[in-house]
């Protein structure tokens, strides 16, 4: 009896010791190792934490497997950890899982699983997931084409200030897709995205000024935004530049180009 009690106590003590040895590393220790590029150490710290139900550790472990950091690249293992974290409510994991399945990772995901996770992440406010859903419905990719649903998701991402979403909502508002056409609102949306530095919106804004669509026609403003768009890599802005330079004259154009250059830096 005494021996048995003693043995039990000893076993308990050993268990407590080994348990305390395991929990000497915290999630933050793993993060510190990750930041110094000691990914193998980060993986060894996060694995037991993730197995014990730490969602942040599970999410980051998924990232290590996806990127092959400290462990061999293993998309299936990345998806497995992200699923655990996503089901536990990690928005980043829901987002990554949805995008991974959309990008073709994983063997035969259940039908609708991509959509399920993108919707979960979107409902939890992830703007890029909202944008992705918007694009899927806009183009009819993996779902039936539906401008109204596309507009709803894209609109949420735009409200969060995500520039590509602002640009897409602006185009839909201009073209009356999923929403009645309204040139003035479209102009304002293009302007917001352009001011956030989104080059395609800058080109579109230049065209609004060039044509006087939703705003009073203004060749100098058109030129200003077209220069910025071109500096951002939008080649078709050159058409606006050519037309507007011809209108305002070379001297004014030169001044505006110099101004635009300082703004683009």
């Amino acid at each position: 009896m005494t021996i048995r009690t003693f043995a039990a106590a000893l076993a308990l003590a050993c268990f407590a010791l080994s348990a305390s040895a395991q929990v000497t590393h915290t999630f933050d220790d793993g993060m510190a190792a990750f930041e110094t590029a000691d990914f193998a150490k980060a993986a060894s710290i996060w694995t037991p934490l993730a197995e014990a139900g730490d969602l942040k550790a599970a999410y980051n472990l998924g990232v290590l497997y996806q990127e092959g950091k400290g462990v061999a690249v293993n998309e299936a293992e990345a998806l497995r950890w992200w699923r655990i974290a996503a089901e536990g409510g990690s928005i980043d994991a829901q987002h990554n899982l949805g995008l991974s399945l959309l990008a073709g990772a994983g063997e035969n995901p259940a039908p609708g699983e991509t959509l399920h996770w993108l919707i979960r992440a979107s409902e939890n406010g992830n703007a890029q997931s909202q944008y992705t859903l918007g694009k899927m419905y806009y183009e009819g990719l993996g779902v039936p084409k539906d401008y109204e649903i596309a507009y709803q998701w894209m609109g949420q991402a735009a409200e969060a200030g995500f520039p590509p979403a602002l640009y897409n909502v602006a185009k839909m508002t201009r073209d009356g897709q999923g929403v009645p056409p309204d040139m003035k609102i479209a102009f304002k949306l293009f302007a917001t995205a352009a001011e956030a530095g989104y080059a395609k919106a800058q080109a579109a804004l230049a065209v609004r000024y060039q044509l006087g669509e939703g705003v009073r026609r203004d060749p100098e403003q058109a030129l200003r935004w077209a220069y910025r768009a071109r500096a951002g890599g939008v080649e078709r802005a050159q058409e606006t530049i050519d037309a507007m330079v011809a209108e305002v004259g070379a001297d004014v154009a030169k001044r505006i180009e110099a101004e635009a250059k300082t703004l683009s830096k």
């Binding site: 933050d28 990750f34 942040k56 959309l102």
Partner: peptide, 26 residues
């Protein structure tokens, strides 16, 4: 294969999805 399925817009979305995944978080 991707373009045959969903056109070039589908390919663009897939590439954006692959890139848009988030990294490790503190």
């Amino acid at each position: 294969a991707l373009i045959r399925q969903n056109g070039i817009d589908g390919l663009i979305l897939v590439l954006q999805a692959d890139t848009g995944r988030k990294g490790a978080r503190p």
